[in-house]
Structure formats: C-alpha cells, structure tokens
C-alpha cells in the first residue's frame, strides 16, 4: 500500500504542478515543465491542440482514484489491525524532546526499524493528516456546487485552492525529508521491499507476549 501511495502521490503532484502553472495563485511560483506531467508543450499542442493542460487534468482526475481508494484501504487497515495505535501512539512531548536531543548528538537508534521514534510518529501522523486535508480540499474544488458546504468550510473556492496548494507544499516538504532519511538507513528500504524486517532481538511490549509461561 505504501508504494501504491507513493506512485499516486507523485503522479498527483506532477500533474497538479502543471495545472497550477496555468493559473497560479502566486504567479512568482512556477514549476519547471520538465518536472510536471502533461507532455512537452509544443509537441502536445501539435498533437492535440492543447499545450498539455488537458493531459494534466486527465492524469490528475485518474490518479485521484488510486490515491483515495488506496488511502481509504490503508486507513481502514491501520485502524482495524491496531497498527496505528501500536506504531504511532502515544506521542509524548517528552519523547519528542528526547528524540530531537538524540538526533542532534547523532545518537538516534536504528536497531529496530519496526519502532518509530517520536519525531517519526509526529511526521507520519502529520503527512496522513495533510493527505486527508488535500483530498477534502480537492473535493471542494471539484464540486463547489454539489458540496458547497465543504467549499464554504475552506472559505470559498479560492480558499479551497489555497489549502490544496499548502497541503501539497507540506507533503512535498515531508517527502524531501522522508526520502533523504530513508536513504540514510538503507535497511528500512530492504524491509519495505521484501515485506518484513529482519530484527535481531524483537523487543515486544509485555502486553504482546501471549505465549504462556514466557
């Protein structure tokens, strides 16, 4: 589910940037066309009479289904199996401070990649929240009449566009940090591709020890 999400998010960002370029809220921000999805402008215009905006819309409104369906499946899985509660909860401010201190002294532990530190928990919960917000704002932009209460919630059509953009910015900022740190600890990637980590000594919480007599 993570890799499906990765593909969906990247495709949504690349096509979304092309759509943004057509009528940016902040004209100073323009995304390089080569980083966007929609086709090389001159070629696309020659082929379809449109410089790629139409293609970008096709991509965006196709991959939204993958993003939303995979995201819903992931959230349901996380809640039902208790994975979210186990991995992401609790988030204690004291742990957060401790993790930041460890990180600054280069003492972060990576022995067990199945355990998240407090900063990881905050970032993972944060990026999930950003994804929920970006989908809600996207719906408000797509259906400002049928879902006008939702559009009103974002302060109107332009408000929803702004939130959609800011949530994208947050997700991109997360991605930069997330990918860089994952590359620093390659073992995590191996675990993600093979489906399971090799952990030398599993340190399970006492509550999860179910074997009698142990």
């Amino acid at each position: 589910m993570h890799w499906t999400n990765a593909v969906a998010v990247l495709m949504m960002i690349a096509s979304g940037w092309r759509i943004w370029n057509n009528d940016p809220i902040f004209p100073a921000i323009e995304f390089p066309v080569t980083w966007t999805l929609g086709g090389e402008p001159a070629l696309t215009y020659r082929l379809h009479g449109d410089a790629g905006f139409g293609n970008a819309l096709l991509w965006h409104f196709a991959f939204m289904w993958l993003l939303v369906l995979n995201g819903l499946a992931y959230l349901a899985y996380g809640v039902v199996t208790g994975r979210f509660r186990r991995m992401l909860w609790p988030i204690r401010p004291a742990d957060l401070v401790a993790t930041i201190k460890d990180a600054l002294r280069f003492k972060l532990g990576h022995d067990d990649v199945t355990m998240y530190n407090a900063v990881q928990k905050v970032l993972y919960v944060g990026v999930m929240a950003a994804l929920v917000v970006i989908v809600a704002a996207g719906l408000a932009i797509w259906k400002p009449v049928q879902l006008h209460w939702l559009t009103a919630l974002f302060g109107g059509f332009q408000g929803a566009r702004l939130v959609h953009f800011l949530a994208m910015s947050a997700i991109v900022a997360f991605l930069v940090v997330h990918v860089a740190l994952a590359l620093l600890v390659p073992r995590t990637l191996l675990a993600m591709v093979t489906g399971g980590p090799s952990v030398p000594a599993r340190r399970l919480p006492a509550s999860l020890h179910t074997v009698p007599g142990e």
């Binding site: 080569t34 090389e40 070629l43 790629g52 970008a56 991509w59």
Partner: peptide, 8 residues
Amino acid sequence: LTGCDVSN
C-alpha cells in the same frame, strides 16, 4: 525520467 512523452 521524462514526464513528457508518456502523456502523448
């Protein structure tokens, strides 16, 4: 890699 040709 390109993000281009695939759209067309």
